[in-house]
Amino acid sequence: MRTQRRRFRPGRLAASLIAILVAAAWAFPVYWMLNSSLLPNTVLTSTTPRFWPWGGSLDNFAAVFAEGSFWPALGMSVAITLTTVVFCLLFAFLAALAISRFRFRGRASFVLAVLFIQMLPAEGLFIAQYKLMSSLSLLNTVTGVSILYVAAVVPFTIWMLRGFVAGVPIELEEAAMVDGLSRTQAFFRITFPLLAPGLVASGVYAFLQAWNEFTVALVILQKEEYRTLPLWLRGFVQASASRATDWGQVMAASTLVAVPVIIFFMIVQGRLTSGLVAGAVKG
């Protein structure tokens, strides 16, 4: 849209100024998290807030690491997230192959079901899922939560991967088969490497969902020693209602939870947007 610049030139400076102000307002909470995480509690509880981390240190992070409850929560989060990502990718990959490489009876209804399931809110099912896990004796377990996460994340992952699989022309595989590879060989030697970016994007999507999930975790993981990181963070906020909170430590904890997410998010952002509003943008 280069030409638009010419047209808006009189107002461009003003628009840029507004843009910078909006950017500052939007980034402020993230900045404030980092800023507070570096400042000691004595500064944070003084009457005037300090807007720059002068005199800051990593003490809050050290305190979070030293405090016993971070590591088990990290362990739970990592275990659940990895399990979810692995199984979600595997299942979604197979299903994406089925719907983009085959025409079969029930294909349309499967796609329809997947798209609807993708929209179901955890709030509408978590009581029933709680009872299910309780009857399977899977409350407070990695397995229990992972099963629910895979089911919640797999539909959109299939939808994402389907586009990638369809993007690899079948002719490539056929050419390889003409050259003497078997169908399986052709698939793994030709198509699979081309799908790597799609698998990475979908894997990161599944990672983000599982790492950030709160609702299901809250219901299934009720014992303190089995909390994931989001539940562990919630513990601090709960405590803040009744007694003085060390906000520096809470912000250090939030930073630790948020940083990997922000990095991974940057990787998939583009694909996530186009997947959600598929077709609407290109019209």
């Binding site: 980034a27 790492w211 709160f214 601090f236 906020v237 912000m251 939870v257 998010f265």
Partner: peptide, 24 residues
């Protein structure tokens, strides 16, 4: 600049955002 700021807010995990806003 605007896009980076928007991406930061978008990328923040819900619970981390909530703790920051509750602190704000």
């Amino acid at each position: 600049v605007l896009q980076v700021a928007m991406l930061l807010a978008w990328a923040m995990p819900v619970i981390a955002s909530m703790t920051v806003w509750i602190w704000l």
